[in-house]
Design a protein around this nucleic acid. Sequence first.
RNA 1: GGCUAGGUGGCAGAGUGGUGAUGCAGCGGCCUGCAAAGCCGUGUACACCGGUUCGAUUCCGGUCCUAGCCU
Length: 314
Amino acid sequence: MASERGEPGCIAITGPTACGKTDLALILAREFPIEIISMDSAMVYRGMDIGTAKPDAATRAEVRHHLIDILDPEESYSAGRFAAEARRLVGEIRSRGKLALIVGGTMLYLKAMREGIAELPERDSAIRAEIDARAEALGWPALHAELEALDPEAARRIEPGDRQRIQRALEVHAITGRPLTELQREGTARATVFDSLALIPANREALAQRIERRFDHMVRQGLVEEVRALRARTALSADSSSMRAVGYRQVWAFLDGRWGWAEAAERAVIATRQLAKRQLTWLRSDSRSDRLDAEDPGVLELLRRRVGRALDNS
RNA sequence: GGCUAGGUGGCAGAGUGGUGAUGCAGCGGCCUGCAAAGCCGUGUACACCGGUUCGAUUCCGGUCCUAGCCU
């Protein structure tokens, strides 16, 4: 229906981890003039290949991929950057006469791109460190109370224990001198309209098993070595946002000696399952995505039709 | 067979004569620059059968299990 909305050149395929979206996207990309835009908050990092199930070099030589390997793991990405960069890429790909296929499971990025995101300052490490120090001394509920005074509306919707959001709201206020809520109200332009197809595994139990098998596979591929190499980077720590990723965090803890291997592996699988659950929760309430049964053998054919139609319209 | 210590929700693990301990997992949900993150919510558990009691998971007796020791 993209054409009917006058928007174009772009389709998203999303779904929880390990639902098969990458494989399907590659099949499509080999059959149609497509470039893939990765919508994945972990594949952006260089050196994080095995644990993110990143498409390998041969595949990427064959099918053009974007927003993979664009940052060092010490850096941080953001939904705002994704929205801006993906939008720009869609235009570029279109100008080459190709279809941009957005593939990934980072739902906030999908939302930021589709609905637009307010123009806010980027994170500021110095200010965050300062806020963390105060939280250490006073506790997050105390900072929540401070936020109450600066931005009552934000305080109302943010839980007193939600350090991440309290921190961001205080950070934005510290940088701009204005309440986050106000800034968010002002600028949520630049939405991009496009179809998105959500692959939903009908069987949770089967998904859980696939997750477990996939983790075992990653370990055989050398996940532990990959994390060991990352740990050698002095600028990287367990607190880095890249190292909070599922799998990496747990293997890091194992290498620290905090957990035995059995425990680390089990926790990695659990964390991945929980991630999938959160993704499914997001998709359940997302009325703007078409929900497809990931296990239905007919999905590929369905995707082919959607892609073909989108190409005809652009 | 005897003695001793135990049997608490899927798991771990406190506790009390009468207000849902807690943690983990699971399940549901939230989501505006860390999102593979962060957070919120969610359980008529007290082995079984009697007894005492206004009231027993908690006290008493028995039964059945489990572990250790003894013969």
